[in-house]
Simulated assay, not measured.
Amino acid sequence: MDLSKKFLAEFFGTFWLVFGGCGSAVLAAKYLTPDGVQLGIGFVGVALAFGLTVLTMAYAIGHISGCHLNPAVSFGLLFAGRMPFKDLIPYILAQVLGGAVGAGFLYFIASGSGNSGFDLKNGFACNGFDEHSPGGYTMIPCAVAEALLTFFFLMIILGATDAKAPAGFAPIAIGLGLTLIHLIGIPITNLSVNPARSTGPALIMKFQGSIDWPVKQLWLFWAAPIGGAIVAGIVHRLFASESKN
């Protein structure tokens, strides 16, 4: 497949992940009707939304680019021997650009509402630790959580897409896996496990002049997920070599 087509697929897929997943957090997690009835989806709904973005895109673009939508996934697949090194940088660029544009569209839409429930000044679905962790978790537990949850997410991806796995069911397993780790991780860091998902909202908040802490804390949401993904790629490769013996 032509690399430009893969680039566009990753761009639009990551756009959808950020717009849909973060959009559910910004627009729908808390929603009060004019008479005060709470109709928001809560963090369970947000977790499901992130899972659904990956599931739907896996069926839509999986045959084009593999539907990584995440620099950590690309690194994990690289170390598992599933991706050529020459594709790594173009994939990451497409993912980061898609995430940033998706976050930009989301900010434009959300900022057009007079509803004070839209949390645009205090995070915009950004990932954070210490005082910016939803549960007040400190840096080291947040880093461990991000790395560990990314590790298991990659193990799910690599196992579900293995040649010996049941055909056609990988997107379901991957989408449900992402839902599960969001249910665990949203109270800790607002859950990233995806540097592109973290970078998009952080850049939008920085460039529109509201807050800069998401950019300052962004290093953790690159380092921890990529580290966990690389370990998963190596471990899965060891498993694969053992199964051949």
Rank of each mutant, 00 (worst) to 15 (best):
P34F: 00
L158I: 02
A202H: 12
F105C: 08
V215K: 04
S24W: 09
A202E: 15
G21D: 04
D87L: 12
F7N: 06
C142E: 09
G177W: 10
P171A: 03
K121M: 02
K121F: 08
L97H: 04
G117D: 13
A60S: 13
D119Y: 09
E242I: 12
S243R: 14
A125H: 02
G76P: 04
I61Y: 04
L69W: 09
G21H: 09
F151Q: 03
G45K: 01
W213M: 05
L69Y: 04
G168W: 14
S113F: 08
L17T: 05
P195H: 03
G13I: 12
G200R: 11
A165I: 03
L183W: 11
G99P: 06
D119G: 03
A147Y: 10
D2A: 12
F12E: 10
I64Q: 02
A240P: 07
S24G: 15
Q38A: 07
A160Q: 11
G104R: 03
P187G: 04
L48E: 02
L17S: 07
I211V: 15
A163D: 10
D2E: 14
N70Y: 04
A28H: 08
I64W: 14
S198P: 13
L191H: 10
L218K: 00
T138V: 00
P71H: 01
R237F: 11
G81K: 09
Y59R: 05
L88V: 00
A60I: 12
V46E: 08
V96S: 07
A163S: 12
V54D: 07
L178S: 07
L158C: 14
L27P: 09
L93K: 02
F7W: 15
S24K: 00
K121C: 05
G23A: 04
P71K: 02
I234V: 15
L78D: 06
V231Q: 01
V231W: 08
A202V: 02
V37A: 13
A232H: 08
P141F: 05
P34Y: 10
R82N: 13
S111G: 13
W219E: 03
S74Y: 10
F12A: 07
G99R: 01
G233I: 03
N122M: 01
F118W: 08
L220V: 05
V46M: 05
T56K: 09
T189S: 15
S24P: 08
N245R: 15
H132E: 05
N70I: 14
R197I: 10
G136M: 11
M205I: 12
F19D: 14
I204F: 11
D119Q: 00
A173K: 04
P214I: 02
P84M: 06
D162K: 15
A160N: 09
E146H: 06
N194E: 14
L176K: 01
L88K: 04
L48K: 00
F124P: 11
A110P: 14
G114Y: 10
E10D: 03
K6E: 13
L148E: 01
G40R: 09
A49S: 15
K30V: 05
